[in-house]
């Protein structure tokens, strides 16, 4: 499942809910991305999505990951709107019978989300605001899975 959230969320509570009641899963991997303050240089992040389109594009990649890695289930939460340093921006959890698939699928989904998912990101700081695009590192990380 994929959800866009315009309010802060609790990654720990989400992980507990995701793990609950799984008697045949064996492995859950999760990742939480947190907004960095960059020593005062980033006072807030603003993330824009295209509701409906953004979820559909992410879901397409996630469904392909389910097949590729043999996942039993996944949960992707992504913040939109204004995000303060220290708040969780993104949360990915993957469930599989054994750990390797859960780790790899989680890594893969994060690389996709960081570089290719339909979000537009603006960083606010003391010097004003700027649109942020994926770094060369983000693009290279995503290309590992092509």
């Amino acid at each position: 499942m994929i959800r866009l959230l315009d309010q802060p969320f609790d990654p720990g509570a989400e992980l507990n809910r995701f793990c609950a009641g799984r008697t045949e899963t064996g492995a859950v991997a999760s990742f939480t991305g947190i907004a960095r303050g960059e020593a005062g240089q980033a006072t807030a992040l603003e993330l824009e999505a295209y509701p409906g389109f953004t979820e559909a594009q992410i879901d397409e990649i996630a469904q392909a990951a389910v097949t590729r890695f043999g996942l039993q289930d996944f949960l992707i939460l992504h913040r939109v709107g204004r995000i303060a340093p220290g708040e969780a921006i993104v949360f990915v959890a993957t469930a599989s019978a054994h750990r390797r698939a859960a780790f790899e699928a989680c890594d893969h989904l994060m690389d996709y989300l960081k570089s290719r998912a339909p979000f537009w990101k603006k960083e606010h700081g003391p010097g004003g605001e700027r649109w942020v695009e994926p770094t060369a590192r983000d693009l290279a990380d995503a290309a590992r899975w092509d």
């Binding site: 913040r79 921006i89 960081k114 990101k121």
Partner: peptide, 10 residues
């Protein structure tokens, strides 16, 4: 119709 600049990821 939507116009989408390069996607920046999350």
């Amino acid at each position: 119709v939507a116009f989408l600049p390069p996607m920046s990821g999350g």
